[in-house]
């Protein structure tokens, strides 16, 4: 009787271990997919906000034409439109990656292999639209045809092969961001720099309403200031200039921090994707906070009406 129990115990133990192992692998893949969704969504919003910055820069150039007579023609407008379009393509690409990662996350119940297939094809199309993404054209070709393969992997629950298929794309995305990051920082700096130049000019020409400077004193009493018609006092003009320069420095620092954080998050994502692809497991949980990126994005999303 004891021998019979042991005979049945070993297969049951094997099935239990296999199930546990399968669950562990699925946990790793789910964790990676969650991280990928979050990082890619944030990246998409970041690029959209940077595209908004370029649009703002275009408006400033138009304002500079109105206030100082600086020429602005169709060539100048086309330059900025092209840069804005390039950033929007990157935003769409990141969104396509987030959609693919979401589809992976939904696979734990094996309900949506079709979503994985569609998302993979969409990501491939979005990557093909970005000419200077390292290995972008190869990744695009692989992904455009990968829907069927990814679906098969999903149905077989082979998360390691799924990670292997996306590994080169994530690595290329991280590399592209690192290479282009100096341009992103520069775009933000020149926007703030131009805004600062025009704002200081407006102060010098007595064209600034100092109402907001008075607010800390008057708001507690539900009062608002009355703008005098004569020249701003020297003290108020100096205060306005000081505020412009301080805010400009703060804004530039905020973007620099956001782009550093985004760079770090993409590198971490690439590292963990490669880990799952190469070793079949991803023991680390928790991922870098994207709070610095989100807080930089937020006012620009509001401006865009998002």
């Amino acid at each position: 009787m004891l021998r019979l129990r042991r005979f049945f115990a070993f297969p049951l133990l094997f099935v239990l271990c296999a199930s546990l192992l399968s669950c562990k692998t699925s946990d790793d893949a789910r964790a990676l997919a969650t991280q990928m969704t979050s990082t890619a969504s944030c990246l998409s919003d970041y690029y959209a906000a940077l595209a908004q910055i370029v649009d703002n820069h275009a408006r400033l150039e138009r304002l500079q034409q109105a206030t100082s007579g600086v020429p602005l023609d169709a060539q100048d407008q086309a330059q900025l439109s092209d840069v804005q379009a390039d950033l929007q393509k990157r935003s769409e690409m990141a969104k396509a990656l987030a959609d693919l990662a979401k589809a992976f996350t939904g696979l734990s119940g094996s309900k949506a292999p079709a979503d994985v297939s569609t998302s993979a094809a969409d990501l491939g199309t979005a990557l093909a639209a970005i000419p200077n993404m390292p290995g972008g054209s190869d990744a695009a070709t692989v992904l455009q045809n990968a829907g069927k393969i990814l679906t098969q992997f999903a149905q077989e629950r082979d998360e390691r092969k799924m990670a292997k298929s996306i590994d080169p794309t994530i690595a290329a995305l991280s590399q592209m961001y690192t290479q282009e990051k100096p341009v992103y920082d520069s775009i933000d700096r020149t926007y703030i720099g131009l805004a600062q130049g025009i704002a200081l000019d407006l102060v010098n020409h007595n064209q600034v309403d100092p109402n907001s400077l008075m607010a800390p004193a008057l708001q507690p009493f539900d009062l608002s200031s009355r703008v005098p018609t004569e020249q701003l006092s020297q003290g108020l003009a100096d205060y306005a200039r000081e505020q412009i320069k301080t805010k400009a420095a703060t804004d530039i620092a905020a973007h620099s921090k956001a782009s550093d954080t985004m760079d770090g998050a993409l590198k971490e994502l690439a590292k963990r994707t490669h880990e799952l692809a190469a070793e079949g497991r991803m023991p680390q949980r928790g991922f870098p906070s994207l709070a610095d990126v989100e807080s930089w994005i937020e006012p620009h999303q509001k401006q865009h009406g998002k």
């Binding site: 100048d76 840069v83 775009i187």
Partner: peptide
Amino acid sequence: VASRRNYWNCVQ
């Protein structure tokens, strides 16, 4: 204007 265009060319 030339300086501005040079900058945006480089960004592109």
